[in-house]
Simulated assay, not measured.
Amino acid sequence: MKKTITFLLSLFMIISLVACGNTSAQTEQPSAESNSAGSSVSEETSVPAESELETESAQPDETQETAGITEIAETTEITEITETAADIPESGTDAETEGTKVLVAYFSATNTTEGVAEHIANGLNADLYEIIPEEPYTDEDLDYNDNNSRSTLEMNDTSSRPAIAGSVENMEQYTIVFLGYPIWWGEAPRIVSTFVESYDFSGKTIVPFCTSGGSGIGSSASNLEQLTSGATWLEGRRLNGSDSQDIVMEWVNGLGLNLGE
Rank of each mutant, 00 (worst) to 15 (best):
E54L: 12
E154P: 14
S220K: 10
E96W: 08
E71H: 05
L227Q: 15
E235W: 15
R150G: 00
E62R: 00
S220I: 08
W184S: 11
P48I: 12
Q64N: 04
A32H: 09
L227Y: 14
R237V: 02
I15W: 12
I183K: 09
S39G: 13
S36D: 08
T97L: 08
V207C: 10
Y181K: 10
S219V: 03
E261H: 09
E50I: 09
L124C: 00
N223R: 12
A25G: 15
D157C: 11
L142Q: 01
D243E: 05
G38F: 14
T70R: 03
A121G: 05
A109E: 11
E28W: 15
Y129R: 04
F7I: 05
A121Q: 01
S40E: 12
S222R: 14
V18K: 06
G186S: 11
F195T: 10
T158C: 04
T84Q: 09
T113R: 08
T76F: 09
C210L: 05
D94I: 15
G68A: 14
I132R: 14
N223C: 01
R161G: 09
V18E: 07
S193P: 07
S220G: 07
Y174M: 14
E44P: 02
A163S: 15
T76D: 12
Y106N: 14
T138V: 10
G115N: 09
V196G: 04
E77A: 13
E235S: 15
L255D: 01
T84R: 09
S244P: 06
A37D: 01
S46C: 05
P60R: 07
M13F: 09
Y137M: 06
P30H: 02
S219I: 01
G230K: 13
S151H: 00
E235F: 15
I247C: 02
K204C: 04
L239K: 08
G260P: 06
L103M: 12
C210D: 13
N35C: 10
F195L: 13
L234Y: 12
D127I: 05
V192I: 14
Q59V: 04
V41N: 02
V104Q: 05
L9M: 13
E140F: 06
A188T: 09
V18L: 11
K2V: 03
S198F: 07
L9D: 03
W184D: 06
S202K: 00
A109N: 13
S16F: 13
S91Y: 14
T194P: 01
Q26G: 10
F201A: 08
Y174A: 03
L259Q: 02
T76M: 10
S108H: 06
P182R: 01
